[in-house]
Amino acid sequence: VTDKQKARAQQKNDLSQWKYAELRDVINTSCNIELLDGCREEFHRRLKVYHAWKMRNKKNVQSAARDSEEDHKR
């Protein structure tokens, strides 16, 4: 989609394309240390991005609710 993503997609073992179940299975069963570390890293990257988005989204919703409450009071 983006140039960055395209470049990553061309890399061998591009873990950003993997589904959750694939990452989880490698983490639970693989003995390949390099792949294992890569999968853990990708898993944590997704979690971190998700939590950051969730926090931002929560703040936006709260401030929108506050704005509409103030509009109601006027």
Binding site: V1, Q17, A52, W53
Partner: peptide
């Protein structure tokens, strides 16, 4: 999606 949710790096599929 790239603009709003780019950090997720969702694959094309």
């Amino acid at each position: 999606v790239d603009e709003v949710l780019g950090d997720f790096e969702f694959p094309d599929e």
